[in-house]
Design a protein around this nucleic acid. Structure first.
Lengths: 143, 143
DNA sequence: GATGTTTATGAAAATCACTTTCATTACCAT
DNA sequence: ATGGTAATGAAAGTGATTTTCATAAACATC
């Protein structure tokens, strides 16, 4: 899996005439080893712990590149932080977010997706993407 | 309807031991007369046109109060602006957002809501709220 | 109505989370 | 090794809030 993502990125780099750098490799390594939903800040702190010479701006720019390359996706949970999640080919999922501890669980539901398409169609919209988040208490926080 | 909302707010003010002020009345008036999705900036500009003496901070703080009082709700469409929409008792709706012109259409779909509850339940979550936005091209922008 | 205590307001400063700038480095195809 | 780009890091800049603080308005209570 990691191998595939790395290839995806190096191909992207090559295709775009960009350069392969130590920093990008390092950041990709940390991103792939990370939880599925990281803010720039979170990833930056993890990276900086081992590589104090890598700056925030580089992490920021590299994450944008990952998104462009198709191996990450920006998401917003309304807490003022942009997060990046891993993208796996052909996979789309939505989120359950715990309002107490912040736990994020992913889920997929084809039936809901189909209904969304119908709603859009009935309003004459042509859907590109969607976002669905369910906020509440996770099993642990319900005690 | 407006009457009900005003009472809701004045009751809230009283309950919290806050004060009724000319500014708050004015801002509420403009909010109730507005489109359903206003950013702070948009409402501020509308208010300022008639009441140049009311500051941005007051609009900002008052909108937060409306949300607390339950007559407005904060929403984010990922464009970096916090918007406030009207809350009507017992009503929940989701949004279709045009990615070209920004048009926002509201919709409700009980079947989807039910499926969301089932998803949540299957993961042991107790849902408080949810957010669902479908992004794409509106009929006009599809040409 | 005057007064005293609180809360509210407006202007300006401060925050926050990015984004961009720019002088300096690092890549990499000769 | 070298010349031409692209990348990096530190710092400055942005945009949208959010907070601070001196002043003004409410709302009891005289």
């Amino acid at each position: 899996m990691k191998r595939v993502k790395k290839k995806l990125f190096s191909d992207f780099i090559a295709r775009k005439g960009l350069k392969s750098t130590r920093q990008r490799d390092t950041i990709l390594e940390f991103f792939l080893a990370s939880d599925r939903h990281m803010s720039i800040e979170e990833l930056y702190l993890k990276v900086r712990a081992k590589h104090p010479n890598i700056g925030y701006a580089t992490v920021y720019r590299t994450l944008k590149l990952f998104a462009e390359a198709g191996l990450a996706r920006e998401i917003q949970f309304g807490d003022g932080q942009t997060r990046y999640e891993h993208v796996n080919e052909g996979e789309h999922h939505d989120h359950l977010v715990c309002t107490r501890c912040g736990t994020i669980v992913e889920f997929e539901n084809p039936v809901i997706e189909k209904l969304q398409d119908e709603v859009a169609k009935s309003h004459g919209f042509l859907i590109e993407t969607h976002k669905m988040e369910l906020y509440g208490l996770c099993p642990k926080c319900r005690k």
